[in-house]
Computed example of a mutant assay.
Amino acid sequence: MDSIIFDLDGTIWDPIDTVLEAWNRTIEEHDEAGQTMTRADFEGVMGLQVKEIEEKLFPDVDEEVRSRMLQACLEREEELLGKRGGRLYPDVEKVLETLSRSYKLFIVSNCQDGYIETFYDYHKLERFFEDFENPGRTGLSKGENIKLIVERNNLKAPVYVGDTDGDRKAAESAGIPFVYAKYGFGHVEKHDEVLETFGDLVKLY
């Protein structure tokens, strides 16, 4: 193994409390949105691309209105995350520092453009990562973005760490091993390795 590619939400941090506040503030400004969101609503869509989230959370809202409202949600989300950040899982900085001495580290997340940069800016963790990618920049699936990172950085033996079955499928489509972050938001039956905590990465590798 020469490198580790990470998912972000549910793997490195839990941003839901901040995101929930941002979205609910915006939803309250749009009568057509219906009731405000709960943490369970967001846990159920973590790992999906923005378009899929929009369809699952607001299925009865007109598509044009829905897209406009979602854009407002994302803008407020980025603004609030920039002020408050999210909740890092225990020992993230220490573990990343240890891993970065032996492996190249990357992030591939199903997020909008600017989201990973906001994570970097608030938590000051950019120094540990070589590169990142997301569909907000490329328009590609997570599996295709993983392949892009692998090719762009000439990786020979990467693994992907994530917390959802979508992450597993993405790693599988990219042809690399999948490490399941069991402490995150999803439930995954098939995996190559499993982490009970983020810190287990140091024991594993």
Rank of each mutant, 00 (worst) to 15 (best):
E21S: 14
M1L: 11
V95W: 03
Y205K: 11
L204W: 09
R101L: 12
E54F: 07
N110K: 02
H191V: 01
T98V: 15
G85I: 05
N110T: 01
V161P: 00
R66F: 09
L148S: 15
S141R: 11
V45Y: 02
V19S: 03
P177R: 02
N134I: 06
V45I: 15
F198Q: 03
E21G: 07
S102E: 13
T164E: 01
D121W: 12
D31R: 13
A22D: 11
G186K: 00
S67H: 12
T38V: 10
M37C: 07
K83G: 08
G143H: 02
F58H: 03
K94D: 10
Y120D: 12
V202F: 06
T98M: 14
R84F: 15
A174P: 02
K83I: 12
E117C: 05
P135Q: 06
G139M: 04
E172I: 01
Y180P: 05
G139N: 13
V161A: 01
F6Y: 04
E117M: 07
A72S: 11
G82F: 09
L8R: 02
C73M: 15
E21H: 13
G166R: 03
R168Q: 11
R137P: 10
C73D: 06
G136S: 08
G44L: 02
K124L: 10
P90W: 01
W13I: 12
L81W: 04
L195H: 08
Y89I: 04
E55N: 10
L195W: 00
A157L: 08
L20H: 07
D17R: 13
